[in-house]
């Protein structure tokens, strides 16, 4: 945690969070995916939600609504917690 915090303070313009706590309407990139749940991971990578892709969160409620590259997706909180973004 401390390391993470110091990292953020060094780079105030770039921080890594889960998609669920990303600020809406900001452009970012997908940093990595949580790999502990193989089912969700498989779904995400099959749909092309991959590290390095540009991402913008459009809405957090009623579901997480976001754009990756040119495509829009809706996911629930559980899945949004598996996507890490940096912006």
């Amino acid at each position: 945690m401390i390391a993470e915090n110091s990292h953020i303070s060094l780079n105030p313009t770039l921080k890594t969070t889960t998609l669920s706590s990303m600020e809406p309407k900001k452009a970012g990139k997908i940093a990595h995916l949580e790999t502990k749940n193989p089912g969700i991971l498989q779904k995400l990578i099959a749909m092309g939600i991959l590290p390095g892709m540009p991402v913008t969160l459009l809405r957090r409620s009623p579901s997480y609504f976001f754009e990756v590259d040119q495509t829009r997706y809706a996911v629930d909180r559980e899945i949004a917690n598996h996507i890490y973004v940096s912006y």
Partner: peptide, 9 residues
């Protein structure tokens, strides 16, 4: 269940 769906334009 978990929810993930592509939104067509």
């Amino acid at each position: 269940p978990t929810f993930i769906l592509e939104m067509p334009p």
